[in-house]
């Protein structure tokens, strides 16, 4: 009786939470992006056209997209290695290695940014080591350049990509590879003909996940970026420096739309790969 009641009660409660935490803020955001002033005013699309007409925000949008794409692709490809090792092999120090790789999951973007500065800042650990080894402080200040942003975002995505790929690899049946082996397939053929075709959906999903997280991440670039502004940072600056809420809202809606497109595309592609032939 109590259980049924709980079930009946939890439905509307969930719906209410959904409305309060997701639907209502989204409506406010979209509506805000379609108005002229900070507190209402006439309906307009100017905020959206402004994003594409203003050089800095256009460039930031462009950078956001290609940096996120690049980082997501790198994360998927590179993290497949450790994920494979963690799932299929036992080696001394595996637990520690896994902990080290997945720990940044709990770090905020700002913390990652600071770590990046500590390692690759002007007097970071790496340039000082380089100076000690070679006499020249290579990588000094890399943190503030494009390379630093890419490294920091990549680092930010390692745990997400690794964990996501791990769970996909765990679902793979190793006996299929043994079967392929017995049929004469070498390691590369086993990977391309057996593992990869089964893994495509997971790779796509991981790509979409890391892309969306990078696209929305703000803390990392807040700390390290000098010239490379990304769209989330533009949102922040439009609010902090210029009080232009409608423009900031429009930028947020654009970011949301891109993230939504990415995950829908990944889903569609997964569906095609697994169902239609």
């Amino acid at each position: 009786m109590l259980k049924r009641f709980a079930a009946i009660a939890s439905g509307p409660l969930l719906l209410a939470v959904l409305v309060v935490l997701l639907v209502w803020p989204l409506i406010c955001l979209v509506s805000g992006s379609l108005h002229e002033g900070n507190s209402g005013g006439a309906w307009t699309l100017d905020n959206y056209t402004a994003i594409f007409q203003t050089r800095s925000s256009r460039v930031a949008l462009f950078h956001s997209i290609w940096i996120s794409l690049g980082v997501a692709a790198a994360a998927v490809v590179i993290c497949l290695g450790p994920a494979w090792l963690f799932v299929r092999h036992d080696f001394p120090g595996k637990r520690i290695a896994r902990a080290v790789l997945t720990l940044p999951m709990s770090f905020s973007g700002i913390l990652i940014g600071f770590l990046c500065v500590i390692m690759l800042g002007r007097i970071g650990v790496v340039p000082r080591l380089m100076e000690w080894l070679t006499g020249t402080d290579y990588f000094s200040g890399t943190a503030y350049q494009l390379g630093g942003i890419l490294i920091a975002y990549f680092y930010f995505e390692i745990p997400r990509a690794t964990l996501s790929l791990e769970s996909a690899l765990r679902k793979l049946d190793p006996r299929l590879e043994l079967a392929a082996c017995s049929l004469g397939a070498g390691a590369w053929q086993r990977f391309t003909l057996v593992v990869l075709p089964q893994l495509w959906p997971a790779l796509l999903a991981t790509f979409a996940l890391t892309f969306c997280v990078s696209l929305g991440s703000f803390g990392v670039v807040l700390i390290v970026a000098k010239r490379f502004s990304l769209l989330p940072l533009e949102v922040f600056e439009q609010i902090i420096a210029f009080n232009r809420y409608p423009l900031a809202a429009a930028m947020s809606v654009v970011l949301l739309a891109i993230a939504l497109c990415a995950s829908l595309t990944a889903r569609w592609a997964t569906h095609r790969l697994t169902h239609v032939r």
Binding site: D173, R175, L176, L178, A179, C181, S182, L183, G184, A185
Partner: peptide, 14 residues
């Protein structure tokens, strides 16, 4: 194994 030219039928079919 891939060079032995032995055919294998697995219990789980695989």
């Amino acid at each position: 194994a891939e060079r032995r030219e032995f055919g294998i039928v697995f219990q789980s079919y695989a």
